[in-house]
Amino acid sequence: MAVIESIIQHYNHWIMIFLMVSGLYIVVNRGNMVKKLVGLSLFQTSVYLIYITPGKILGGTPPILDDAFTVYSNPLPHVLILTAIVVGVATLALGLALVVRINEAYGSIEEDELFANGEDGT
């Protein structure tokens, strides 16, 4: 019984770690820049999860005040993550713009090909 309880209590954290590590793996392993950006956003989303998870109170409601409820989940992480998501898409757009420019300048978005071109003599 204690084992099942501990699994339920930490399931969010484990999934979060899995997502984060997958993002890290993609960023380190894959040479394709669009894929790298997808990996970065995976990493970022796992951080959203790590922030929101401790804010939840079992039996609580969303933090919109009403006389009918007394227990609310913590609003502070929601605020932080809300702004982080929009900032995240703005920075993602910046990264994608860089990818587009690199593709126009060098004709490739693969890291390996870029390095190979660089060694040819330019």
Partner: peptide, 9 residues
């Protein structure tokens, strides 16, 4: 920002 970025891309 979103509209301008979309137009740019």
């Amino acid at each position: 920002t979103m509209v301008a970025v979309f137009y740019a891309f």
